[in-house]
Amino acid sequence: MSEKIDYPVQLIQPDGARVHGSAYSAEVADIGPDELRGLYEDMVVLRRIDAEATALQRQGQLGIWAPSSGQEAAQIGSARALEPDDYVFTSYREHGLAYSRGVPPAQWPPLWRGAALANWDPAEFNLTNPAIVVGSQGLHATGYAMAAHLDGAEIAVMAYFGDGATSQGDISEALGFAAGWGVGVVFFCQNNHWAISEPVRLQSPFPLVARPGGFGIPGIAVDGNDVLGVLAVTRTAVRRAREGGGPTFIEAITYRMGPHTTADDPTRYRTGAEVEHWRARDPIDRLRRLLEREGAIDEEFTRRVDAAAGEAAGALRAGALAIPDPAPLTLFDHVYCGPHPLIDEEREQFSAYLGTLEEVRP
Protein backbone atom coordinates (compact mmCIF):
# COMPACT_ATOMS: atom_id res chain seq x y z
CA MET A 1 0.00 0.00 0.00
CA SER A 2 2.95 2.33 0.48
CA GLU A 3 4.25 1.95 -3.11
CA LYS A 4 3.80 4.85 -5.50
CA ILE A 5 0.90 4.25 -7.88
CA ASP A 6 0.24 6.44 -10.92
CA TYR A 7 -2.88 8.56 -10.56
CA PRO A 8 -5.43 7.24 -11.22
CA VAL A 9 -5.27 3.43 -11.50
CA GLN A 10 -6.60 2.26 -14.86
CA LEU A 11 -6.72 -1.25 -16.35
CA ILE A 12 -9.12 -0.61 -19.28
CA GLN A 13 -8.78 2.44 -21.50
CA PRO A 14 -11.88 4.22 -22.85
CA ASP A 15 -11.39 2.51 -26.23
CA GLY A 16 -11.48 -0.91 -24.58
CA ALA A 17 -7.75 -1.60 -24.77
CA ARG A 18 -6.11 -3.13 -21.72
CA VAL A 19 -3.48 -1.24 -19.76
CA HIS A 20 -0.39 -3.37 -19.22
CA GLY A 21 2.20 -3.07 -16.50
CA SER A 22 -0.05 -1.83 -13.71
CA ALA A 23 0.84 -2.87 -10.18
CA TYR A 24 -2.82 -3.84 -9.74
CA SER A 25 -3.11 -6.17 -12.74
CA ALA A 26 -2.38 -9.22 -10.59
CA GLU A 27 -5.46 -8.49 -8.47
CA VAL A 28 -7.73 -9.35 -11.42
CA ALA A 29 -5.66 -12.10 -13.03
CA ASP A 30 -8.52 -14.53 -12.31
CA ILE A 31 -11.03 -12.48 -14.32
CA GLY A 32 -11.54 -14.33 -17.59
CA PRO A 33 -14.17 -14.00 -20.34
CA ASP A 34 -16.99 -15.46 -18.23
CA GLU A 35 -16.31 -13.08 -15.36
CA LEU A 36 -16.06 -10.11 -17.73
CA ARG A 37 -19.42 -11.02 -19.24
CA GLY A 38 -20.87 -11.27 -15.75
CA LEU A 39 -19.64 -7.76 -14.90
CA TYR A 40 -21.06 -6.45 -18.16
CA GLU A 41 -24.46 -8.02 -17.50
CA ASP A 42 -24.59 -6.57 -13.99
CA MET A 43 -23.86 -3.09 -15.31
CA VAL A 44 -26.43 -3.29 -18.10
CA VAL A 45 -29.10 -4.57 -15.72
CA LEU A 46 -28.32 -1.79 -13.25
CA ARG A 47 -28.68 0.90 -15.89
CA ARG A 48 -31.97 -0.56 -17.10
CA ILE A 49 -33.35 -0.63 -13.54
CA ASP A 50 -32.21 2.97 -13.09
CA ALA A 51 -34.04 4.06 -16.24
CA GLU A 52 -37.20 2.25 -15.11
CA ALA A 53 -37.11 3.90 -11.69
CA THR A 54 -36.68 7.32 -13.28
CA ALA A 55 -39.66 6.64 -15.52
CA LEU A 56 -41.73 5.53 -12.53
CA GLN A 57 -40.96 8.80 -10.78
CA ARG A 58 -41.93 10.81 -13.84
CA GLN A 59 -45.20 8.86 -13.95
CA GLY A 60 -45.97 9.70 -10.32
CA GLN A 61 -45.35 6.19 -8.98
CA LEU A 62 -42.22 7.15 -7.00
CA GLY A 63 -41.79 10.31 -5.00
CA ILE A 64 -38.12 10.77 -5.97
CA TRP A 65 -35.19 8.80 -7.34
CA ALA A 66 -31.41 9.32 -7.28
CA PRO A 67 -30.10 8.13 -10.68
CA SER A 68 -26.86 6.16 -10.86
CA SER A 69 -26.35 6.18 -14.64
CA GLY A 70 -22.64 6.54 -15.41
CA GLN A 71 -21.50 5.13 -12.08
CA GLU A 72 -22.11 1.44 -12.83
CA ALA A 73 -18.45 0.44 -12.96
CA ALA A 74 -17.66 2.10 -9.62
CA GLN A 75 -20.53 0.28 -7.92
CA ILE A 76 -20.45 -3.13 -9.58
CA GLY A 77 -16.66 -3.35 -9.61
CA SER A 78 -16.36 -2.57 -5.91
CA ALA A 79 -19.33 -4.74 -4.94
CA ARG A 80 -17.85 -7.79 -6.65
CA ALA A 81 -14.74 -7.47 -4.46
CA LEU A 82 -16.77 -8.21 -1.32
CA GLU A 83 -17.57 -11.43 0.48
CA PRO A 84 -21.09 -12.22 1.74
CA ASP A 85 -20.12 -11.59 5.38
CA ASP A 86 -18.65 -8.14 4.64
CA TYR A 87 -20.94 -5.28 5.63
CA VAL A 88 -21.88 -2.31 3.45
CA PHE A 89 -23.05 1.17 4.45
CA THR A 90 -24.38 3.20 1.53
CA SER A 91 -25.69 6.64 0.76
CA TYR A 92 -28.70 7.07 -1.54
CA ARG A 93 -27.23 6.34 -4.99
CA GLU A 94 -25.69 2.89 -4.54
CA HIS A 95 -28.36 0.88 -6.35
CA GLY A 96 -25.59 -1.32 -7.74
CA LEU A 97 -24.77 -2.49 -4.24
CA ALA A 98 -28.38 -3.47 -3.64
CA TYR A 99 -28.38 -5.46 -6.87
CA SER A 100 -25.01 -7.10 -6.20
CA ARG A 101 -25.90 -8.01 -2.63
CA GLY A 102 -29.00 -9.83 -3.85
CA VAL A 103 -31.80 -7.47 -2.87
CA PRO A 104 -34.72 -8.30 -5.22
CA PRO A 105 -35.60 -5.24 -7.34
CA ALA A 106 -39.23 -5.51 -6.20
CA GLN A 107 -38.02 -4.57 -2.69
CA TRP A 108 -36.31 -1.34 -3.76
CA PRO A 109 -39.25 1.09 -4.17
CA PRO A 110 -41.02 1.54 -0.77
CA LEU A 111 -38.77 4.29 0.60
CA TRP A 112 -38.60 6.06 -2.77
CA ARG A 113 -42.38 5.87 -3.09
CA GLY A 114 -42.74 7.46 0.33
CA ALA A 115 -44.63 4.45 1.65
CA ALA A 116 -42.12 3.12 4.20
CA LEU A 117 -39.07 4.11 6.21
CA ALA A 118 -36.91 1.36 4.68
CA ASN A 119 -36.81 -1.06 1.77
CA TRP A 120 -35.25 -4.23 3.21
CA ASP A 121 -33.88 -5.82 6.37
CA PRO A 122 -30.18 -4.85 6.53
CA ALA A 123 -29.29 -8.02 8.44
CA GLU A 124 -30.54 -10.17 5.57
CA PHE A 125 -28.15 -8.69 3.00
CA ASN A 126 -25.42 -7.10 5.16
CA LEU A 127 -26.40 -3.86 3.46
CA THR A 128 -27.91 -0.76 4.99
CA ASN A 129 -30.85 1.07 3.51
CA PRO A 130 -30.19 4.35 1.66
CA ALA A 131 -28.76 6.99 4.00
CA ILE A 132 -30.25 10.39 3.20
CA VAL A 133 -28.21 12.35 5.78
CA VAL A 134 -25.04 13.12 3.80
CA GLY A 135 -21.91 11.55 5.27
CA SER A 136 -23.53 9.98 8.32
CA GLN A 137 -22.89 6.46 7.05
CA GLY A 138 -19.14 7.01 7.37
CA LEU A 139 -19.49 7.16 11.14
CA HIS A 140 -21.92 4.23 11.20
CA ALA A 141 -19.52 2.09 9.17
CA THR A 142 -16.57 2.98 11.37
CA GLY A 143 -18.44 2.09 14.54
CA TYR A 144 -19.68 -1.18 13.06
CA ALA A 145 -16.19 -2.12 11.89
CA MET A 146 -14.78 -1.39 15.34
CA ALA A 147 -17.43 -3.56 16.99
CA ALA A 148 -16.82 -6.36 14.48
CA HIS A 149 -13.12 -6.25 15.29
CA LEU A 150 -13.82 -6.47 19.02
CA ASP A 151 -16.01 -9.50 18.31
CA GLY A 152 -13.16 -11.14 16.41
CA ALA A 153 -14.91 -11.01 13.02
CA GLU A 154 -12.45 -10.99 10.12
CA ILE A 155 -14.55 -8.91 7.74
CA ALA A 156 -14.30 -5.75 5.74
CA VAL A 157 -16.77 -2.89 6.13
CA MET A 158 -17.45 -0.52 3.24
CA ALA A 159 -18.67 3.07 3.52
CA TYR A 160 -19.93 4.60 0.26
CA PHE A 161 -20.34 8.34 -0.24
CA GLY A 162 -19.94 11.02 -2.88
CA ASP A 163 -17.50 13.86 -3.33
CA GLY A 164 -19.91 16.25 -1.63
CA ALA A 165 -19.84 14.20 1.55
CA THR A 166 -16.10 14.78 1.92
CA SER A 167 -16.98 18.35 2.90
CA GLN A 168 -19.09 17.06 5.79
CA GLY A 169 -17.64 16.86 9.28
CA ASP A 170 -19.01 13.32 9.67
CA ILE A 171 -16.55 11.96 7.12
CA SER A 172 -13.61 13.74 8.72
CA GLU A 173 -14.61 12.41 12.13
CA ALA A 174 -14.92 8.90 10.72
CA LEU A 175 -11.49 9.11 9.11
CA GLY A 176 -9.94 10.33 12.35
CA PHE A 177 -11.52 7.60 14.45
CA ALA A 178 -10.71 4.87 11.94
CA ALA A 179 -7.09 5.97 11.74
CA GLY A 180 -6.66 6.24 15.49
CA TRP A 181 -8.05 2.78 16.15
CA GLY A 182 -6.84 1.02 13.01
CA VAL A 183 -10.41 0.15 12.06
CA GLY A 184 -10.92 -2.18 9.08
CA VAL A 185 -13.20 0.05 7.05
CA VAL A 186 -12.89 0.98 3.39
CA PHE A 187 -14.01 4.53 2.60
CA PHE A 188 -15.23 4.44 -1.00
CA CYS A 189 -15.76 7.90 -2.46
CA GLN A 190 -17.55 8.08 -5.79
CA ASN A 191 -16.30 11.39 -7.12
CA ASN A 192 -18.97 12.08 -9.75
CA HIS A 193 -17.82 15.70 -10.03
CA TRP A 194 -21.01 17.35 -8.76
CA ALA A 195 -22.47 17.77 -5.27
CA ILE A 196 -25.88 18.68 -6.64
CA SER A 197 -24.88 21.92 -8.46
CA GLU A 198 -21.51 22.47 -6.79
CA PRO A 199 -18.48 21.22 -8.78
CA VAL A 200 -15.82 19.28 -6.96
CA ARG A 201 -13.21 21.94 -7.76
CA LEU A 202 -15.02 24.30 -5.36
CA GLN A 203 -15.01 21.70 -2.61
CA SER A 204 -11.32 20.90 -2.77
CA PRO A 205 -8.36 22.65 -4.47
CA PHE A 206 -6.47 19.34 -4.57
CA PRO A 207 -7.44 15.71 -5.33
CA LEU A 208 -9.77 14.15 -2.79
CA VAL A 209 -7.50 11.12 -2.55
CA ALA A 210 -4.90 13.36 -0.87
CA ARG A 211 -7.19 14.11 2.08
CA PRO A 212 -6.91 10.81 3.99
CA GLY A 213 -3.12 11.16 4.09
CA GLY A 214 -3.57 13.87 6.70
CA PHE A 215 -5.18 11.25 8.94
CA GLY A 216 -2.51 8.64 8.24
CA ILE A 217 -4.80 6.61 5.98
CA PRO A 218 -3.54 5.36 2.60
CA GLY A 219 -5.49 6.60 -0.42
CA ILE A 220 -5.95 5.06 -3.85
CA ALA A 221 -7.39 6.90 -6.83
CA VAL A 222 -8.92 4.83 -9.62
CA ASP A 223 -10.63 5.48 -12.91
CA GLY A 224 -14.18 4.91 -11.66
CA ASN A 225 -15.45 4.12 -15.18
CA ASP A 226 -13.04 1.17 -15.43
CA VAL A 227 -14.73 -1.81 -13.79
CA LEU A 228 -11.54 -3.92 -13.66
CA GLY A 229 -9.54 -1.10 -12.12
CA VAL A 230 -12.21 -0.58 -9.47
CA LEU A 231 -12.40 -4.30 -8.74
CA ALA A 232 -8.61 -4.50 -8.38
CA VAL A 233 -8.14 -1.61 -5.96
CA THR A 234 -11.16 -2.61 -3.89
CA ARG A 235 -9.85 -6.16 -3.55
CA THR A 236 -6.58 -4.70 -2.27
CA ALA A 237 -8.36 -2.51 0.27
CA VAL A 238 -10.82 -5.09 1.59
CA ARG A 239 -8.06 -7.67 2.00
CA ARG A 240 -6.12 -5.15 4.05
CA ALA A 241 -9.19 -4.54 6.20
CA ARG A 242 -9.86 -8.25 6.76
CA GLU A 243 -6.24 -8.89 7.70
CA GLY A 244 -6.20 -6.15 10.34
CA GLY A 245 -4.26 -3.63 8.27
CA GLY A 246 -6.61 -0.77 9.04
CA PRO A 247 -8.63 1.64 6.89
CA THR A 248 -8.19 2.61 3.24
CA PHE A 249 -9.65 5.48 1.23
CA ILE A 250 -10.58 4.92 -2.42
CA GLU A 251 -11.48 7.77 -4.75
CA ALA A 252 -13.32 6.40 -7.79
CA ILE A 253 -13.30 9.18 -10.39
CA THR A 254 -16.53 8.86 -12.34
CA TYR A 255 -19.38 11.04 -13.59
CA ARG A 256 -23.07 11.43 -12.86
CA MET A 257 -24.69 11.33 -16.28
CA GLY A 258 -28.16 12.26 -15.06
CA PRO A 259 -29.51 14.69 -12.47
CA HIS A 260 -28.62 14.62 -8.79
CA THR A 261 -32.17 13.40 -8.21
CA THR A 262 -35.31 13.52 -10.30
CA ALA A 263 -36.05 16.86 -8.59
CA ASP A 264 -32.93 18.41 -10.15
CA ASP A 265 -32.27 20.07 -13.53
CA PRO A 266 -28.54 19.67 -14.32
CA THR A 267 -28.77 21.79 -17.49
CA ARG A 268 -28.85 24.82 -15.20
CA TYR A 269 -25.30 24.31 -13.97
CA ARG A 270 -23.34 22.15 -16.44
CA THR A 271 -22.77 22.22 -20.19
CA GLY A 272 -23.74 19.72 -22.83
CA ALA A 273 -20.11 19.58 -23.93
CA GLU A 274 -19.09 18.36 -20.48
CA VAL A 275 -21.72 15.61 -20.55
CA GLU A 276 -20.62 14.51 -24.02
CA HIS A 277 -17.00 14.42 -22.88
CA TRP A 278 -17.95 11.90 -20.19
CA ARG A 279 -20.43 10.05 -22.38
CA ALA A 280 -17.44 9.04 -24.53
CA ARG A 281 -16.05 7.44 -21.36
CA ASP A 282 -19.24 5.50 -20.57
CA PRO A 283 -18.30 2.53 -18.34
CA ILE A 284 -20.64 0.08 -20.08
CA ASP A 285 -19.41 1.01 -23.55
CA ARG A 286 -15.83 0.68 -22.32
CA LEU A 287 -16.32 -2.88 -21.11
CA ARG A 288 -18.26 -3.81 -24.25
CA ARG A 289 -15.33 -2.60 -26.38
CA LEU A 290 -12.98 -4.78 -24.35
CA LEU A 291 -15.26 -7.79 -24.86
CA GLU A 292 -15.39 -7.07 -28.59
CA ARG A 293 -11.60 -6.77 -28.78
CA GLU A 294 -11.23 -10.16 -27.10
CA GLY A 295 -14.02 -11.92 -28.99
CA ALA A 296 -16.03 -12.51 -25.83
CA ILE A 297 -19.39 -11.08 -26.89
CA ASP A 298 -21.97 -12.11 -29.48
CA GLU A 299 -25.62 -11.45 -30.34
CA GLU A 300 -26.93 -14.37 -28.31
CA PHE A 301 -25.22 -13.05 -25.20
CA THR A 302 -26.45 -9.49 -25.69
CA ARG A 303 -30.01 -10.74 -26.21
CA ARG A 304 -29.77 -12.70 -22.96
CA VAL A 305 -28.46 -9.65 -21.12
CA ASP A 306 -31.24 -7.46 -22.52
CA ALA A 307 -33.81 -10.03 -21.42
CA ALA A 308 -32.34 -10.13 -17.89
CA ALA A 309 -32.38 -6.33 -17.76
CA GLY A 310 -36.00 -6.21 -18.88
CA GLU A 311 -37.00 -8.79 -16.30
CA ALA A 312 -35.30 -6.88 -13.48
CA ALA A 313 -36.92 -3.61 -14.57
CA GLY A 314 -40.30 -5.32 -14.74
CA ALA A 315 -39.84 -6.64 -11.21
CA LEU A 316 -39.03 -3.14 -9.97
CA ARG A 317 -42.13 -1.71 -11.64
CA ALA A 318 -44.36 -4.48 -10.34
CA GLY A 319 -42.99 -3.98 -6.84
CA ALA A 320 -43.63 -0.24 -6.97
CA LEU A 321 -47.19 -0.57 -8.25
CA ALA A 322 -48.06 -3.22 -5.67
CA ILE A 323 -47.24 -0.97 -2.70
CA PRO A 324 -50.39 0.29 -0.97
CA ASP A 325 -50.47 3.92 0.08
CA PRO A 326 -49.97 4.17 3.85
CA ALA A 327 -52.83 5.46 5.97
CA PRO A 328 -52.24 9.19 6.64
CA LEU A 329 -52.03 8.84 10.44
CA THR A 330 -49.13 6.38 10.17
CA LEU A 331 -47.06 9.52 9.59
CA PHE A 332 -46.83 9.77 13.38
CA ASP A 333 -45.72 6.17 14.00
CA HIS A 334 -42.13 5.49 15.10
CA VAL A 335 -41.20 9.15 15.50
CA TYR A 336 -40.11 8.33 19.05
CA CYS A 337 -39.53 4.93 20.61
CA GLY A 338 -42.47 5.53 22.96
CA PRO A 339 -45.47 7.85 23.48
CA HIS A 340 -44.81 11.56 23.32
CA PRO A 341 -47.31 14.31 24.21
CA LEU A 342 -46.35 16.57 21.29
CA ILE A 343 -46.80 13.74 18.77
CA ASP A 344 -50.11 12.81 20.38
CA GLU A 345 -51.30 16.41 20.08
CA GLU A 346 -50.23 16.69 16.46
CA ARG A 347 -51.88 13.37 15.63
CA GLU A 348 -55.17 14.60 17.05
CA GLN A 349 -54.93 17.87 15.10
CA PHE A 350 -54.15 16.08 11.85
CA SER A 351 -56.93 13.58 12.44
CA ALA A 352 -59.37 16.43 12.89
CA TYR A 353 -58.16 18.00 9.66
CA LEU A 354 -58.59 14.70 7.77
CA GLY A 355 -62.12 14.55 9.06
CA THR A 356 -62.92 17.73 7.10
CA LEU A 357 -61.94 16.07 3.81
CA GLU A 358 -64.46 14.05 1.86
CA GLU A 359 -62.14 11.53 0.21
CA VAL A 360 -59.58 10.94 2.94
CA ARG A 361 -60.12 8.91 6.08
CA PRO A 362 -57.59 8.35 8.92
Rank of each mutant, 00 (worst) to 15 (best):
H340D: 15
E346C: 07
G216S: 00
V103L: 03
R235H: 03
H140M: 13
R304A: 15
M146W: 15
I253Y: 07
G182D: 11
A174Q: 11
A23M: 04
G314S: 06
D15P: 08
V9C: 10
H20W: 02
F301Y: 14
V103G: 05
Q203D: 12
S78P: 10
A74R: 02
T262S: 07
E154I: 00
A123L: 10
T142S: 13
T166S: 14
T248H: 06
G169T: 05
G355C: 06
R270D: 08
P212F: 00
E346S: 10
P339E: 14
A322L: 03
A296M: 10
R201H: 12
A221W: 04
I323A: 12
A221F: 04
P328L: 02
P122K: 00
G319I: 00
A296R: 03
Q59G: 13
E299P: 06
L139D: 09
A55C: 12
G295V: 02
L56I: 05
G338F: 13
T254S: 13
H20A: 12
A309S: 09
G162A: 09
G152P: 07
G176H: 14
A318K: 06
D325V: 10
F215S: 01
M1F: 12
N129Y: 00
D121K: 08
P130A: 05
D30A: 15
G180N: 14
L111H: 10
R47P: 10
L287P: 08
R242L: 06
T248M: 14
V305G: 11
R289Y: 01
A241E: 08
Y40E: 11
Y144F: 15
A178G: 11
A81F: 01
A352D: 15
M43S: 11
L127S: 06
R303V: 13
A66L: 03
S172M: 13
L150F: 14
E72D: 05
N192W: 08
D42F: 01
A115I: 02
G135A: 12
A252M: 03
L97S: 07
A66G: 12
G169S: 12
L290F: 04
R101M: 01
A98T: 02
D333R: 07
T128E: 05
P341G: 04
T236Y: 04
Y24C: 10
L36N: 07
Q10M: 13
Y269C: 05
A141M: 08
S69F: 04
E154N: 11
I343Y: 00
V238G: 05
A263K: 09
Y40K: 07
T271H: 02
Y7I: 13
V45R: 07
R361P: 02
D86T: 00
L228V: 03
